[in-house]
Nucleic acid binder design. Structure first.
Lengths: 230, 230
DNA sequence: GCCTTTATATATCGAACGATGCAGAATTCA
DNA sequence: TGAATTCTGCATCGTTCGATATATAAAGGC
């Protein structure tokens, strides 16, 4: 599981280190094109011919630069995260309270997933990625891991909210995090089918009411005298 | 584009109208196998070699019986609906109130999508289907339509609840239906990643609290004197 | 009339089709 | 010398053709 075994074919950093005599093609731009193709068509449905056409290079150049189709997909995933993760998570990270963080996440998702923040395909590349687990277990694992980070961030933020006294101690943060994750994932499915930002924001509002109701319920359970019910 | 040019290989109805000389293979069982393969691997990633191996027939038999891979997928979708739609929608249809219908839908989904009701792959075949829209627009349209029926049923049921006096007239049924659709879709994504029934049921509980809060909000807005705010 | 034989029709499969898949060797160019 | 390209290899894709096998419907023998 070492990460340093990549091909590292040319300049490790920098936009266009033109030491090589013939100017190399724009690796970053090509990667962006590949990402877009994988995003819209999926891994299996995207052929190397599609990729080379979109990237403007020949197949050997692709293999020299990225190794193989699977490695290119992994790099495209990384590019996706670096380029667009902020659209969805910046507000979440910056929010002072857990409530506001969750609200920011859902509303920013409604905007980003419908292409309102940038000229990008609709829906999350990671959530909607459907690669055959039998044929490409490595990709499948990586995607599952990527999807798991959403849950981790949510549970961590809710736990912090509890620690800071914003949320009641009895709150079931895990279930709440799963709920948010579910709603955000469902948003990707709807966005892929063309549902717009306004409708997704309405969905976010209902979801936030559910979150608030669950928090209030936990507050009341905490405030109530112990052993009142049963 | 005539539809009557199909081979119409055997009996149009009835189990085994043995006018045809050799006994044909079990069409229903073969279709079930194909459905399962398409379900787990997706359309593009499932090859006819995979299909013939799982169905236990040769490729020419497949083409004689189903026409082509795309038509087989459409038939598999129909088989999916006939076989498993009831697992998710029976309780919804039978419920006396809209609230109970929605609760039944979400809890039955939590069970069915995690394979607790039958030995089936996890997640909804329709929701998770990712076929390339460029290469197969017909399949894409059919899937979008299938996904749309969920929304229609939900909006219709909520409208009925309003008509019967169960729900307030000012309720935004469309947004609420979109919310339920979102949660159910998100459940499929989680189920595909291995999340179990109990966790999905916890998600359903939070979602239902959101629904209830939204209904209560509409009730209060209705009961309040007109023009109170603003 | 009962049984056998023939004829027919269809389902099946092995083999192969052209097209396309991913990948690489040899080559050209700066 | 290093990078990109043309050309090619080999496998697999979805699909179809020809031949085989089989079970009924009709024809023939007693």
């Amino acid at each position: 599981m070492q990460n340093s075994d990549g091909p590292a074919p040319n300049s490790p950093a920098g936009p266009a280190r033109s030491r090589g005599r013939p100017r190399a093609f724009d690796r970053e731009a090509a990667l962006a094109q590949a990402m877009r193709l994988f995003w819209t068509k999926g891994y299996e449905a995207t052929s190397v011919a599609d990729l080379t056409a979109a990237m403007g290079i020949g197949a050997p150049s692709l293999y020299a630069a990225f190794g193989c189709k699977e490695a290119l997909y992994v790099e495209a995933l990384g590019h996706y995260g670096q380029s667009y993760e902020g659209l969805v998570w910046a507000g979440f990270t910056a929010a002072p309270t857990a409530r506001e963080a969750i609200a920011a996440l859902l509303f920013d998702s409604a905007a980003a997933l419908t292409g309102c923040r940038a000229d990008i395909p609709h829906g999350c590349m990671v959530a909607l990625a459907a690669v055959d687990g039998e044929a490409h277990p490595a990709l499948c694992d990586r995607l599952r891991t990527a999807r798991g980070t959403t849950l981790e961030r949510l549970t961590a933020r809710l736990a912090r909210g509890v620690a800071e006294g914003e949320l009641p101690a009895g709150l079931d943060g895990h279930s709440l995090a799963r709920f948010i994750q579910t709603v955000q994932g469902g948003m990707s499915l709807l966005a892929r089918d063309g549902v717009g930002r306004a409708e997704l924001e309405a969905v976010a509002e209902v979801a936030l009411q559910g979150v608030e109701a669950r928090i209030r319920q936990a507050c009341e359970a905490e405030a109530a005298p112990a052993g009142a019910a049963l």
